[in-house]
Simulated assay, not measured.
Amino acid sequence: MPKAPTIRSLAEKLKLSVATVSEALRDSPRVSPETRERVQRAAKKSGYVHNPLLGAALSAVRRARHQNYRGTLALVDTAEQGKAELMLFHREIVAGAQERAKELGFTTELFWVGDGPQAVPIGRLSSMLFARGIHGVILLPFNQAQDFSAFDFDRFAAVQMDHCLIKPRLHTVLPDHYVSMMHALERLTGLGYERIGLCMERRKDVRLLNKWSAGFMSFWRSYSQNAGIEPLIVPELTRDVFVEWFRAHSPDLVMAHRQSTVDWMRSIGVRVPEDCGYFILNHTERTGPCAGLDLQPQRMGAAAVESVVGMMLRYERGVPQYPQTITLEASWVEGPTLRTG
């Protein structure tokens, strides 16, 4: 039986050093593109198979010599209207990613795509990251879905958060909006609320493949004879639109992303929580004390890091043939906007 090819046998065949072959197989920018392609083509032809366990063991030895540093992971966000500024929810994701990356021997660096002095075009970003030796990429949950076709994913292990890409389709880490909505409604109806209304801007639902509204409507079809209140899902949620909907349907609890709806209710004489309760769908974005769902942004960041690092150790690069999704159920947060007893 012929011996399985090794890095050393590949190096001898190609008349290259073992170090060069090893770097080429890891897509290192320290090796010229021509040599990388030549080595990888020869490895594929000979049936060479990378052993991730051996690679991890050798990496552990190298880390012991270099203060546990294993590499840098890129966190990518969009600069909207030229502003390179993290939203509050994104700041929590980044905090969780940074902490978990540090535990695994990595650092993180934030990059921006779009317009503005701190941002770069999507196509240029992939070349920039590769030149800096960055092989792991985490796409934050963009406010608007983006087309990343110009990004060369073949060089990277990458995941997206939420369904933030129009294309391509990547492995995804996101809250389980559907199940979280169903469980929240089970608990709210258990507290005695019967006319629960959902209101939000359409983009927030569409970006999540309509999982908020799907969970809301499925609950009333499956768990109650009450058909519930028709959700208010509009391009722009304004006070006038909300007040008209509220007066037409008289909900006893409002679920929303914007806590300004509480001010709108109070402006027409509605007492919260005595007359109508309020439940925020993303507790991180609250502007005052309230009950709601904690979507676990720091856990999301940590899970994304774990996913990308695992892919890097397995030498998995590019757009996956079968994208997988990691979902995290939100947790319930008590607050003064729900009645007690």
Rank of each mutant, 00 (worst) to 15 (best):
P2N: 06
P5I: 12
P5H: 11
T6G: 14
R8N: 13
R8S: 14
E12Q: 14
K13N: 04
L14W: 10
S17D: 04
T20V: 07
L25E: 11
R26Y: 11
S28H: 14
R30T: 09
E34A: 06
E34M: 05
T35K: 09
R38V: 02
R41C: 04
R41Y: 03
K44R: 12
K44S: 05
V49H: 03
L58D: 07
A60P: 07
V61A: 13
H66V: 06
N68H: 10
Y69T: 02
G71Q: 07
L75P: 00
L75W: 01
V76K: 08
D77R: 04
G82W: 04
G82V: 13
G82Q: 10
K83D: 05
A84F: 11
L88A: 11
L88D: 01
H90R: 12
R91G: 06
G96V: 09
G96C: 12
Q98T: 10
G105D: 03
W112L: 08
W112I: 12
V113H: 13
P117D: 15
P121N: 12
R124M: 11
S127M: 03
H135A: 14
G136R: 03
F142G: 09
N143G: 15
A150Y: 10
F151R: 07
D152V: 05
F153S: 04
D154M: 06
D154Y: 12
F156Q: 05
A157C: 03
A158C: 11
M161R: 13
D162R: 09
D162L: 11
H163F: 15
C164L: 15
C164Q: 14
I166T: 15
K167L: 15
L170S: 09
T172V: 15
L174W: 02
P175G: 06
H177F: 15
Y178L: 13
H183R: 15
L185P: 03
E186S: 10
E186L: 15
R187F: 10
Y193A: 08
R202F: 03
R203A: 07
R203M: 06
K204G: 07
K211H: 14
K211C: 11
W212A: 06
A214S: 14
M217Q: 13
W220S: 00
W220V: 01
S224R: 07
I229R: 07
L232N: 04
S250W: 02
P251Q: 00
V254E: 01
V254F: 02
T261K: 03
V262C: 05
D263Y: 13
R271S: 14
R271Q: 13
D275H: 12
G277V: 05
N282Y: 01
N282V: 02
T284G: 03
R286S: 08
A291V: 14
M300W: 07
G301Y: 08
E306F: 00
E306G: 01
V309Y: 00
R314N: 10
Y315A: 11
E316P: 02
V319P: 07
T327P: 01
A330P: 03
S331M: 13
E334L: 09
G341R: 09
